[in-house]
Amino acid sequence: MKKILIGLLPVLCFLGGNTMVNAKTWDKTFAKSDLVTVKKVSFKNRFGIKLAGDLYAPKSIKKGEKLPAIALSGPFGAVKEQASGLYAQTLAQRGFITLAFDPSYTGESSGKPRNIASPDINTEDFSAAVDFLSTQKNVNPQQIGILGICGFGGFAINAAAMDTRIKATVTSTMYDMTRVSAKGYFDAMDADARYAQKEQLNAQRTRDFESGTYAPQPGLPEKLTGQEPWFVQDYWHYYKTPRGFHKRSINSNGNWTMTSTLSLMNLPILAYSNEIRSAVLMIHGEKAHSRYFSEDAFKKLTGDNKELLIIPGATHVDLYDNLQKIPFDKIEKFFKDNLK
Protein backbone atom coordinates (compact mmCIF):
# COMPACT_ATOMS: atom_id res chain seq x y z
CA MET A 1 0.00 0.00 0.00
CA LYS A 2 1.14 3.54 -0.70
CA LYS A 3 0.65 6.60 1.47
CA ILE A 4 1.60 9.84 -0.24
CA LEU A 5 1.46 13.57 0.40
CA ILE A 6 1.20 15.49 -2.84
CA GLY A 7 1.22 19.09 -3.96
CA LEU A 8 -1.82 20.61 -5.55
CA LEU A 9 -2.58 18.84 -8.78
CA PRO A 10 -3.71 20.84 -11.81
CA VAL A 11 -7.37 20.43 -12.64
CA LEU A 12 -8.69 20.34 -16.17
CA CYS A 13 -11.30 21.69 -16.05
CA PHE A 14 -27.01 6.91 -22.96
CA LEU A 15 -28.31 4.90 -22.23
CA GLY A 16 -31.36 2.70 -21.35
CA GLY A 17 -33.03 2.73 -17.94
CA ASN A 18 -36.16 2.28 -15.93
CA THR A 19 -37.22 5.92 -16.25
CA MET A 20 -35.54 8.68 -18.20
CA VAL A 21 -36.39 12.28 -19.08
CA ASN A 22 -34.36 15.17 -20.47
CA ALA A 23 -32.88 17.56 -17.91
CA LYS A 24 -34.32 20.71 -19.51
CA THR A 25 -33.69 23.04 -16.60
CA TRP A 26 -30.24 23.20 -15.04
CA ASP A 27 -30.77 22.85 -11.28
CA LYS A 28 -27.21 22.22 -10.12
CA THR A 29 -24.91 24.29 -7.91
CA PHE A 30 -22.12 24.13 -10.50
CA ALA A 31 -21.85 25.35 -14.09
CA LYS A 32 -23.05 23.11 -16.90
CA SER A 33 -20.43 21.56 -19.18
CA ASP A 34 -20.85 21.63 -22.95
CA LEU A 35 -18.80 18.45 -23.23
CA VAL A 36 -21.32 16.07 -21.65
CA THR A 37 -24.96 15.08 -21.81
CA VAL A 38 -27.03 14.58 -18.67
CA LYS A 39 -30.32 12.75 -18.22
CA LYS A 40 -32.50 12.17 -15.20
CA VAL A 41 -33.01 8.48 -14.42
CA SER A 42 -34.56 6.36 -11.72
CA PHE A 43 -34.07 2.78 -10.51
CA LYS A 44 -35.04 0.68 -7.51
CA ASN A 45 -32.88 -0.79 -4.78
CA ARG A 46 -33.61 -4.18 -3.25
CA PHE A 47 -35.78 -2.56 -0.57
CA GLY A 48 -38.11 -1.33 -3.32
CA ILE A 49 -37.11 2.31 -2.88
CA LYS A 50 -36.93 4.28 -6.13
CA LEU A 51 -33.67 6.18 -6.39
CA ALA A 52 -33.29 9.29 -8.53
CA GLY A 53 -30.09 9.96 -10.41
CA ASP A 54 -28.43 12.16 -13.00
CA LEU A 55 -26.66 10.14 -15.68
CA TYR A 56 -23.74 11.92 -17.36
CA ALA A 57 -21.99 10.81 -20.56
CA PRO A 58 -19.30 12.38 -22.73
CA LYS A 59 -20.71 13.82 -25.94
CA SER A 60 -17.82 12.19 -27.77
CA ILE A 61 -19.18 8.68 -27.10
CA LYS A 62 -19.50 6.65 -30.30
CA LYS A 63 -22.46 4.48 -31.26
CA GLY A 64 -22.03 1.02 -29.83
CA GLU A 65 -19.08 2.05 -27.65
CA LYS A 66 -18.99 0.69 -24.10
CA LEU A 67 -17.31 2.89 -21.50
CA PRO A 68 -16.25 2.39 -17.89
CA ALA A 69 -18.79 3.77 -15.43
CA ILE A 70 -18.78 5.30 -11.95
CA ALA A 71 -21.62 5.63 -9.41
CA LEU A 72 -21.32 8.60 -7.04
CA SER A 73 -23.07 9.87 -3.93
CA GLY A 74 -22.53 12.19 -0.99
CA PRO A 75 -21.80 14.16 1.03
CA PHE A 76 -23.98 13.04 3.96
CA GLY A 77 -27.03 15.31 3.82
CA ALA A 78 -26.33 16.56 0.30
CA VAL A 79 -28.07 15.90 -3.02
CA LYS A 80 -26.87 14.95 -6.48
CA GLU A 81 -27.09 18.55 -7.63
CA GLN A 82 -24.21 19.47 -5.30
CA ALA A 83 -20.75 17.90 -4.89
CA SER A 84 -21.47 14.43 -6.30
CA GLY A 85 -22.86 16.00 -9.46
CA LEU A 86 -19.77 18.17 -9.85
CA TYR A 87 -17.56 15.09 -9.58
CA ALA A 88 -19.82 13.16 -11.95
CA GLN A 89 -19.82 15.85 -14.62
CA THR A 90 -16.06 16.36 -14.39
CA LEU A 91 -15.35 12.64 -14.71
CA ALA A 92 -17.79 12.35 -17.63
CA GLN A 93 -15.73 15.05 -19.38
CA ARG A 94 -12.77 12.72 -18.93
CA GLY A 95 -14.35 9.71 -20.63
CA PHE A 96 -16.53 7.93 -18.08
CA ILE A 97 -20.26 7.36 -17.87
CA THR A 98 -21.21 8.58 -14.41
CA LEU A 99 -24.29 8.34 -12.22
CA ALA A 100 -24.78 10.80 -9.36
CA PHE A 101 -27.72 9.66 -7.24
CA ASP A 102 -29.77 10.76 -4.26
CA PRO A 103 -29.71 8.22 -1.41
CA SER A 104 -32.92 6.63 -0.15
CA TYR A 105 -35.29 8.93 1.75
CA THR A 106 -33.55 12.08 0.51
CA GLY A 107 -33.58 14.49 -2.41
CA GLU A 108 -35.67 13.28 -5.35
CA SER A 109 -35.42 9.64 -4.28
CA SER A 110 -38.43 8.00 -2.67
CA GLY A 111 -38.90 6.51 0.78
CA LYS A 112 -40.92 7.65 3.76
CA PRO A 113 -40.53 9.09 6.29
CA ARG A 114 -38.13 11.57 4.78
CA ASN A 115 -34.58 12.39 5.80
CA ILE A 116 -33.70 9.02 7.33
CA ALA A 117 -30.23 7.47 7.19
CA SER A 118 -29.47 3.75 7.43
CA PRO A 119 -26.06 2.07 7.22
CA ASP A 120 -27.66 -0.95 5.53
CA ILE A 121 -29.91 0.87 3.07
CA ASN A 122 -27.35 3.53 2.18
CA THR A 123 -24.78 0.83 1.41
CA GLU A 124 -27.40 -0.94 -0.68
CA ASP A 125 -27.99 2.29 -2.61
CA PHE A 126 -24.49 1.99 -4.09
CA SER A 127 -25.11 -1.60 -5.17
CA ALA A 128 -28.45 -0.58 -6.70
CA ALA A 129 -26.58 2.04 -8.72
CA VAL A 130 -24.21 -0.71 -9.88
CA ASP A 131 -27.27 -2.79 -10.86
CA PHE A 132 -28.49 0.09 -13.00
CA LEU A 133 -25.15 0.83 -14.64
CA SER A 134 -24.51 -2.86 -15.34
CA THR A 135 -27.55 -3.00 -17.63
CA GLN A 136 -26.87 0.14 -19.69
CA LYS A 137 -26.06 -0.47 -23.35
CA ASN A 138 -23.08 1.91 -23.39
CA VAL A 139 -21.51 0.62 -20.14
CA ASN A 140 -19.03 -2.20 -19.83
CA PRO A 141 -20.40 -4.10 -16.80
CA GLN A 142 -16.92 -5.37 -15.97
CA GLN A 143 -15.65 -1.79 -15.60
CA ILE A 144 -17.74 -0.20 -12.85
CA GLY A 145 -16.38 1.82 -9.94
CA ILE A 146 -17.89 3.93 -7.19
CA LEU A 147 -17.02 7.24 -5.55
CA GLY A 148 -18.32 8.34 -2.16
CA ILE A 149 -17.93 11.79 -0.65
CA CYS A 150 -17.99 12.52 3.11
CA GLY A 151 -20.39 10.10 4.85
CA PHE A 152 -21.00 8.25 1.61
CA GLY A 153 -17.29 7.56 1.45
CA GLY A 154 -17.79 5.25 4.41
CA PHE A 155 -20.81 3.61 2.78
CA ALA A 156 -18.78 3.22 -0.43
CA ILE A 157 -16.05 1.32 1.46
CA ASN A 158 -18.75 -0.88 2.97
CA ALA A 159 -20.25 -1.52 -0.46
CA ALA A 160 -16.84 -2.41 -1.89
CA ALA A 161 -16.38 -4.97 0.89
CA MET A 162 -19.66 -6.63 -0.09
CA ASP A 163 -20.18 -6.12 -3.82
CA THR A 164 -17.55 -7.88 -5.93
CA ARG A 165 -18.83 -6.19 -9.10
CA ILE A 166 -17.20 -2.97 -7.87
CA LYS A 167 -13.74 -2.91 -9.45
CA ALA A 168 -12.43 0.36 -7.99
CA THR A 169 -13.48 2.70 -5.16
CA VAL A 170 -12.59 6.32 -4.44
CA THR A 171 -13.47 8.11 -1.22
CA SER A 172 -13.15 11.85 -0.84
CA THR A 173 -13.06 13.56 2.57
CA MET A 174 -14.52 10.35 4.06
CA TYR A 175 -16.58 10.15 7.24
CA ASP A 176 -17.34 6.91 9.06
CA MET A 177 -20.87 7.87 10.11
CA THR A 178 -21.23 4.83 12.34
CA ARG A 179 -18.05 5.62 14.28
CA VAL A 180 -18.84 9.29 14.80
CA SER A 181 -22.42 8.46 15.82
CA ALA A 182 -21.32 5.87 18.35
CA LYS A 183 -18.21 7.56 19.71
CA GLY A 184 -18.48 11.25 18.89
CA TYR A 185 -15.73 13.29 17.28
CA PHE A 186 -12.23 11.97 18.02
CA ASP A 187 -13.87 9.08 19.93
CA ALA A 188 -14.64 11.32 22.91
CA MET A 189 -17.90 9.54 23.83
CA ASP A 190 -17.47 6.69 26.33
CA ALA A 191 -19.88 3.82 27.01
CA ASP A 192 -21.78 5.73 29.72
CA ALA A 193 -22.30 8.75 27.49
CA ARG A 194 -23.36 6.46 24.66
CA TYR A 195 -25.88 4.72 26.91
CA ALA A 196 -27.31 8.07 27.98
CA GLN A 197 -27.72 9.08 24.36
CA LYS A 198 -29.47 5.79 23.59
CA GLU A 199 -31.87 6.44 26.45
CA GLN A 200 -32.70 9.86 25.02
CA LEU A 201 -33.14 8.56 21.49
CA ASN A 202 -35.33 5.65 22.53
CA ALA A 203 -37.51 7.99 24.58
CA GLN A 204 -37.81 10.05 21.40
CA ARG A 205 -38.96 6.93 19.54
CA THR A 206 -41.87 6.65 21.93
CA ARG A 207 -42.79 10.31 21.47
CA ASP A 208 -42.53 9.95 17.69
CA PHE A 209 -44.83 6.93 17.74
CA GLU A 210 -47.38 8.74 19.90
CA SER A 211 -47.35 11.85 17.72
CA GLY A 212 -47.10 10.09 14.36
CA THR A 213 -44.24 12.40 13.39
CA TYR A 214 -40.46 12.21 13.43
CA ALA A 215 -38.56 14.81 15.41
CA PRO A 216 -35.65 16.41 13.54
CA GLN A 217 -32.06 16.67 14.64
CA PRO A 218 -30.56 20.14 15.02
CA GLY A 219 -29.21 21.42 11.72
CA LEU A 220 -26.80 24.11 10.67
CA PRO A 221 -27.64 27.56 12.06
CA GLU A 222 -29.38 30.01 9.76
CA LYS A 223 -26.75 32.61 10.66
CA LEU A 224 -23.28 32.34 12.11
CA THR A 225 -22.34 34.05 15.34
CA GLY A 226 -18.62 33.43 14.87
CA GLN A 227 -18.53 31.28 18.02
CA GLU A 228 -19.21 28.00 16.20
CA PRO A 229 -16.41 25.42 15.76
CA TRP A 230 -14.42 26.21 12.64
CA PHE A 231 -15.59 23.07 10.83
CA VAL A 232 -19.25 24.06 11.39
CA GLN A 233 -18.43 27.39 9.79
CA ASP A 234 -16.75 25.48 6.95
CA TYR A 235 -19.97 23.52 6.36
CA TRP A 236 -22.12 26.65 6.66
CA HIS A 237 -20.20 28.51 3.98
CA TYR A 238 -20.95 25.66 1.58
CA TYR A 239 -24.51 24.63 2.39
CA LYS A 240 -26.03 27.94 3.50
CA THR A 241 -24.65 30.27 0.84
CA PRO A 242 -25.10 30.43 -2.95
CA ARG A 243 -21.84 28.49 -3.23
CA GLY A 244 -23.57 25.19 -2.45
CA PHE A 245 -27.15 25.83 -1.28
CA HIS A 246 -29.80 23.55 -2.77
CA LYS A 247 -33.42 23.51 -1.67
CA ARG A 248 -33.57 19.70 -1.56
CA SER A 249 -30.38 19.28 0.48
CA ILE A 250 -30.97 18.32 4.10
CA ASN A 251 -27.92 20.31 5.19
CA SER A 252 -29.06 23.37 3.25
CA ASN A 253 -32.78 23.32 3.91
CA GLY A 254 -33.82 20.60 6.36
CA ASN A 255 -32.87 18.18 9.12
CA TRP A 256 -32.12 14.50 9.53
CA THR A 257 -34.59 12.65 11.74
CA MET A 258 -33.28 12.40 15.28
CA THR A 259 -33.72 8.64 15.64
CA SER A 260 -31.65 7.88 12.52
CA THR A 261 -28.67 7.98 14.87
CA LEU A 262 -29.71 4.74 16.60
CA SER A 263 -28.91 2.40 13.70
CA LEU A 264 -25.73 4.34 12.90
CA MET A 265 -24.57 3.87 16.50
CA ASN A 266 -25.13 0.14 16.48
CA LEU A 267 -23.98 -1.11 13.06
CA PRO A 268 -20.29 -0.37 12.32
CA ILE A 269 -19.86 -0.29 8.54
CA LEU A 270 -16.13 -0.96 8.15
CA ALA A 271 -16.02 -4.36 9.86
CA TYR A 272 -14.98 -6.25 6.71
CA SER A 273 -13.07 -3.54 4.87
CA ASN A 274 -9.87 -5.58 5.27
CA GLU A 275 -11.39 -8.08 2.81
CA ILE A 276 -11.67 -5.63 -0.09
CA ARG A 277 -9.64 -7.06 -2.96
CA SER A 278 -10.35 -4.36 -5.53
CA ALA A 279 -8.46 -1.08 -5.75
CA VAL A 280 -9.19 1.76 -3.29
CA LEU A 281 -8.05 5.39 -3.37
CA MET A 282 -8.80 7.46 -0.26
CA ILE A 283 -8.43 11.26 -0.52
CA HIS A 284 -8.49 13.69 2.39
CA GLY A 285 -7.51 17.25 3.19
CA GLU A 286 -4.49 17.94 5.38
CA LYS A 287 -6.46 20.44 7.47
CA ALA A 288 -9.77 18.56 7.57
CA HIS A 289 -11.17 17.91 11.05
CA SER A 290 -12.25 14.52 9.67
CA ARG A 291 -8.84 13.43 8.38
CA TYR A 292 -8.49 10.73 11.02
CA PHE A 293 -11.42 8.78 9.55
CA SER A 294 -9.54 8.15 6.31
CA GLU A 295 -6.20 7.57 7.99
CA ASP A 296 -7.63 4.96 10.37
CA ALA A 297 -9.74 3.26 7.69
CA PHE A 298 -6.73 3.10 5.40
CA LYS A 299 -4.69 1.26 8.04
CA LYS A 300 -7.20 -1.58 7.93
CA LEU A 301 -7.09 -2.04 4.15
CA THR A 302 -4.89 -4.81 2.80
CA GLY A 303 -3.12 -5.44 -0.48
CA ASP A 304 -0.84 -3.38 -2.68
CA ASN A 305 -3.68 -1.70 -4.63
CA LYS A 306 -4.76 0.69 -1.85
CA GLU A 307 -3.63 4.31 -1.59
CA LEU A 308 -4.14 7.26 0.77
CA LEU A 309 -3.74 10.73 -0.73
CA ILE A 310 -3.50 13.76 1.60
CA ILE A 311 -4.06 17.15 -0.08
CA PRO A 312 -1.89 19.87 1.52
CA GLY A 313 -3.80 22.81 2.93
CA ALA A 314 -7.24 21.42 2.12
CA THR A 315 -10.11 21.45 4.60
CA HIS A 316 -12.99 18.97 4.68
CA VAL A 317 -15.30 21.12 2.54
CA ASP A 318 -12.57 22.11 0.06
CA LEU A 319 -12.96 18.64 -1.43
CA TYR A 320 -16.65 19.26 -2.12
CA ASP A 321 -16.14 21.88 -4.83
CA ASN A 322 -12.71 23.53 -4.81
CA LEU A 323 -11.38 22.75 -8.28
CA GLN A 324 -7.91 23.86 -7.26
CA LYS A 325 -7.73 21.16 -4.60
CA ILE A 326 -9.82 18.21 -5.81
CA PRO A 327 -7.21 15.99 -7.54
CA PHE A 328 -9.23 15.09 -10.63
CA ASP A 329 -6.11 14.15 -12.62
CA LYS A 330 -5.28 11.57 -9.96
CA ILE A 331 -8.88 10.30 -9.76
CA GLU A 332 -9.08 9.95 -13.54
CA LYS A 333 -5.83 8.00 -13.70
CA PHE A 334 -6.85 5.76 -10.81
CA PHE A 335 -10.14 4.78 -12.47
CA LYS A 336 -8.57 4.34 -15.90
CA ASP A 337 -5.84 2.14 -14.45
CA ASN A 338 -8.29 -0.03 -12.52
CA LEU A 339 -11.41 -0.10 -14.70
CA LYS A 340 -9.95 -2.04 -17.59
Results as ranks from 00 to 15, higher is better:
264 L>Q: 05
137 K>F: 09
165 R>D: 02
284 H>V: 14
313 G>L: 08
138 N>A: 09
29 T>P: 09
233 Q>R: 08
71 A>T: 08
7 G>K: 10
242 P>G: 09
129 A>Y: 06
30 F>A: 12
59 K>N: 14
312 P>V: 05
101 F>E: 01
245 F>P: 13
129 A>K: 02
119 P>G: 15
301 L>N: 03
87 Y>E: 02
207 R>Y: 13
124 E>W: 01
311 I>K: 03
222 E>H: 11
298 F>A: 04
308 L>S: 04
325 K>H: 03
214 Y>G: 06
110 S>L: 10
190 D>T: 00
167 K>Y: 12
209 F>L: 04
69 A>M: 07
249 S>V: 04
1 M>R: 06
329 D>E: 06
238 Y>M: 01
319 L>M: 10
282 M>V: 03
50 K>T: 15
87 Y>G: 06
319 L>P: 02
186 F>G: 13
228 E>I: 11
180 V>P: 03
307 E>S: 11
250 I>H: 02
79 V>I: 15
324 Q>P: 00
68 P>E: 02
41 V>S: 04
189 M>P: 01
134 S>D: 09
67 L>F: 05
210 E>G: 07
300 K>I: 12
78 A>C: 15
180 V>R: 04
34 D>I: 07
91 L>Y: 00
271 A>Y: 09
93 Q>R: 13
186 F>R: 01
66 K>G: 04
73 S>C: 15
205 R>W: 02
306 K>V: 00
56 Y>Q: 10
325 K>R: 06
124 E>N: 06
118 S>Y: 06
115 N>V: 01
51 L>E: 05
202 N>M: 14
25 T>D: 15
301 L>C: 11
87 Y>H: 04
271 A>G: 07
128 A>Q: 03
50 K>I: 12
161 A>K: 04
231 F>W: 13
118 S>G: 11
103 P>T: 02
31 A>M: 14
140 N>L: 04
88 A>C: 12
101 F>S: 01
187 D>G: 08
184 G>Q: 01
41 V>W: 07
247 K>V: 08
240 K>H: 13
100 A>R: 00
260 S>Q: 06
208 D>T: 02
100 A>H: 11
46 R>E: 13
243 R>M: 05
300 K>T: 14
159 A>M: 03
55 L>T: 10
260 S>V: 10
80 K>M: 12
99 L>P: 05
81 E>Y: 05
234 D>N: 14
15 L>N: 03
202 N>V: 06
152 F>Q: 00
118 S>H: 11
325 K>T: 01
242 P>A: 08
152 F>E: 02
42 S>D: 14
62 K>D: 07
295 E>M: 11
199 E>G: 01
141 P>L: 12
208 D>E: 14
309 L>I: 05
124 E>I: 00
312 P>H: 01
326 I>F: 01
111 G>M: 05
208 D>A: 11
306 K>T: 03
30 F>C: 09
79 V>P: 03
11 V>M: 08
58 P>W: 15
32 K>G: 04
257 T>G: 10
2 K>I: 00
338 N>C: 08
10 P>M: 10
190 D>Q: 00
310 I>K: 04
235 Y>W: 07
40 K>H: 15
164 T>K: 14
122 N>G: 01
136 Q>G: 10
